[in-house]
Amino acid sequence: GVLPHKKAPGDNQVVSLLLLAEPEAILAMADPTVPDSDIKALTTLCDLADRELVVNIGWAKHIPGFPSLSLADQMSLLQSGWMEILILRVVFRSLALDERLAYAEDYVMDHDQSKMAGLLDLNNAILQLVKKYKSVSLDREEFVLLKAIALVNSDSAPHEDSEAVQHLQDVLQGALQDYEAARHAQDPRRAGKLIMSLPLLRQTAARAVQHFCGIKRDGRVPMHKLFLELLEAK
């Protein structure tokens, strides 16, 4: 008899597609002619966030199954999940660092810089996530899966086609389960552990949105339109 085709361990098509879709790193390019201040730091971060959002919307369109959702459902997921995506990217870039956050390769914030920008509490909350993922040695495959799962799980409001959204959630969660079964078979609870980190991500993202809404109301930091549009969506 002919044996059915057996996939190699870890041969996970969803993971491969997500790894391929991963955006290139973006540089913050803080203006070297402007002296350091809270306004300069926040202006740099808001500009970086706007450019990150553009590439992350492009990225979302490469999540297998996402473009098949209705436009309204794609929009509502991004309107709820965008900050979780931005924060998870900062967290993953910061895993190799000690008590510092890599907002970009050329923009790493330490305690003093966070304090100057008025971001100490928020950055400390993000560092909690870094600590959590460091403790499990989160790998790149898990990072891309978690990011996609965070997005498709981000909206609790009714969807136009809730079955399609549920199906996408199932596909991505299944891909994480399969990946863990193949790559981390010694820890059968690893997928669950990673999923259980998502409430802290959501809580931190809500805090970040609240903080930047305050900065927006304050009106001293220029913000680009997409960033403003998504802050307003919250």
Binding site: I57, L71, M223, K225, L226
Partner: peptide, 21 residues
Amino acid sequence: TERHKILHRLLQDSNDSPTPA
């Protein structure tokens, strides 16, 4: 959709230039 026109546009095309200030 009217309130979220940039997101709407970006989802519909593959434009990845920065958004206007």
